[in-house]
Amino acid sequence: MTSGMRGRTGACVLLVALLLSTLVSLSLGRFSIPLKTVAAILLEPLFDIPAFWSNTEAQVVWAVRFPRVALAAFVGAGLALAGASLQSLFRNPLADPQILGVSSGAALGGVVGILLAGTGWPTICGSFAGGIASLALVFWLAGGTGAGRGSAVMLVLAGLVVGAVGAAGIALVKYAADPDNQLPAIVFWLLGSLAAADKKSLYVTAPPILFSAALILGLRFHLSALAVGEEDARNLGVPVRTVRLLALGAAGLATAAAVAVSGVVGWVGLVVPHLVRLSFGANHRWFFLNTLLGGAGYLILVDTAARTLVAAEIPLGALTALLGAPIFAVLLRRLRGKTDA
């Protein structure tokens, strides 16, 4: 099987998996609704089905579960794509919005937004500014993308520094926040959860993530070329500087939009691209699309577990870390094997 065929198969498999996980997630919840009813409620706008369900059931499916599942899909896709593009951009398998400190920078921007103006759009604008600023800082600290073999370590260290600055800033903002109103909102938001998802949060998140996804998918050939090497990419006619800026911006925007609605949900950008690469190869034509589909499906499933296992919400960030850390550990082992050789 050629890598292109493998990639295409991957896209089909992942698309089917995404649809299935969406359906499963929509039919699960603390308020029990029979599967048949859920299906009927979902199909009702398309077909003329006489309503045999209660208004509450329709409300639960459309006003509670649908926004949440859609939001999980957007956040998962955005974080996974951001991770994949950062990995290509930095030619570094360990790049991830959280490890690079971008999530924490975006979180700092978000809490500053809450402090100055409140939740909603100020949060997303602040998150975006914080995300991009910390990405630029990491980029500068690590000495760009062409630092050679040592860059993996440099990048992680730079991310550590930026992440620490973000965490310190968050602590300061929490100190300055009004303990009665702002502080609880900040704490709630930082918990990292999709529990608050409603239609409004969907409107806030979907456009920036769709935009960055389109940008990254549009740049997928250039990014694949960059992943091989800057010189090679230049020889292939890739406008390196422009591509780098656009991709960085897109990754920052996607991360910021994800952070703005879900707080810091880590590891998705690391785990999903690697799983996709392992299962369906890194064919430049399909890799980014597969990452997008995989990321969406992955986070839908994890979030479904977070909201249905017990009555109280399990923090989503905790679950993704629980799943992500072992994979990161395996990666580290592999990387060490390479450096030792």
């Binding site: 603390r30 308020f31 509670v64 909201r307 009555a311 109280a312 919400e313």
Partner: peptide, 18 residues
């Protein structure tokens, strides 16, 4: 009905309906 949860737990609107 929420007394089996601990402290001020975060739940979905669905849970309140349930």
């Amino acid at each position: 009905p929420a007394s089996h949860l601990t402290a001020y737990a975060s739940v979905s609107a669905e849970q309140v309906l349930a």
